[in-house]
Design a protein around this nucleic acid. Structure first.
Lengths: 230, 230
DNA sequence: CCCCTCCTTTGAACGCGTTCAACTTGGTGG
DNA sequence: CCACCAAGTTGAACGCGTTCAAAGGAGGGG
């Protein structure tokens, strides 16, 4: 259940195992896309992968574990798509907007079962929680991407703020994801609108931190975030 | 599944039905508290309530629906507990802190299965989502509570900001809940710390909106929030 | 060539959420 | 008093996630 012990990772120990594992993951992703999460049964996944039901469980501890692959996949695709935007954007707002929009683009094919995604990810004990140790690699990659957004930009802000900015922007991105999950407009029109409208605002807020009166508050926010990370 | 049609509400149509429904809800809450959500079976709930399995489903569309009762319960208890704090707090910070701390107090007994709560609530299609129409009453009650926090306080801010403040504070409370769900410290020490540290900050930020340079940004935030509500 | 060990694979079996067709009950109009 | 109808109630049956004891291989010592 919700034990705190390290999860037994059913990682393959040989080439043969690796192939089987990959076959199962591939079958799962295909079926999830075709029918959605609920209508995809473990039996169907096993059958398409050409293995027995029990064997699927040898490699993936649960049906939910099959979702992790999407996580990683989106993360990788997002980084690639964002790079394209970052290559020709020099302003902070432009870079942030490009990066967030890239995410919306990349994630679109998965939106129809993103709710299930999210549901699973929301459970604190789940390895799929964005805050979990298991998600650390993907999370750090996302934070690193936000660091690139900041680094290549024309941004003049206090060092304290700048240091925490990537992580704060990642949090903002989680907010966008939250909105996106609930967004049923075609092509995620409303999420794109949110990004378009929120980015200039974030840009403005970040720059405001140079104001004497605001800077103190900003430093407090940074201190608070730091204290929470522990 | 995720239809957009109105959910058939299995509300009791007679006194007899009402009693049965209440018995089931009571049994479920007791069992959830005793054993947690996962280990409580629908069969056990039905048995304790003295009804058949199928009958439980006549009143509650799914096991998850049994959770809604907790939602309402916490909301009611929270309002009562917050009133106590609001009765003798006159500053905005004091009132906000008292209200948020009251929530942490009230919710504590349910923390050990709050993850399941949250998991269910996170799914957009779920009636338990805090953004769903079904949750509107509880949500509105919470926003109203925040309105009371603001109204009784010594707060001088632009009218635009003040108008949206209750809803924004409710959102902030959702943030606290998110943190709380992930908080495994004893007595939710860390969540309390978060409240204690974040409240003065919020207080300060809200008051900053009177600064000429900040006010414009604040108005934009308000406009953004308004545009998203649609 | 055999046996031992460890990884891998199997499918039957289990538990639980959920559905449903049939049955009971209680009240109402004739 | 009866027939009728809707509300309420029942438990068997179904589907699916998950578990597990047992069986297959594959390599390596003896």
């Amino acid at each position: 259940m919700a034990t705190l012990t390290t999860v037994t990772v059913p990682v393959p120990r040989s080439d043969k195992g690796e192939a089987t594992r990959a076959a199962i993951a591939t079958a799962a992703q295909a079926l999830f896309l075709e029918r959605g999460y609920d209508k995809t049964t473990m039996r169907a996944v096993a059958e398409r992968a050409g293995v027995s039901l029990g064997n699927a469980y040898y490699y993936f501890g649960s049906k939910e574990h099959l979702i992790q692959a999407f996580y990683d996949r989106i993360q990788v695709e997002h980084t690639a798509a964002a790079e394209a935007a970052l290559a020709h954007e020099t302003t902070f707002a432009g870079r942030l907007r490009g990066t967030l929009t890239a995410w919306v683009d990349v994630a679109e094919p998965y939106h129809h079962f993103a709710g299930k995604f999210f549901k699973v990810a929301a459970e604190p004990a789940s390895p799929l929680s964005p805050f979990s140790p298991e998600s650390a690699p993907a999370r750090e990659a996302s934070v690193a991407l936000m660091a690139r957004v900041v680094d290549g930009a024309d941004l003049k802000v206090p060092a304290t703020v700048r240091g925490e900015l990537p992580e704060l922007l990642w949090l903002a991105q989680m907010g966008v994801v939250l909105f996106w999950v609930h967004d049923s407009s075609e092509g995620r029109r409303r999420t794109r609108q949110l990004v378009d409208r929120a980015v200039p605002l974030v840009d403005r807020l970040v720059r405001l931190t140079r104001l004497p009166g605001v800077r103190g508050a900003a430093d407090d926010i940074v201190a608070l975030v730091r204290s929470l990370r522990a």
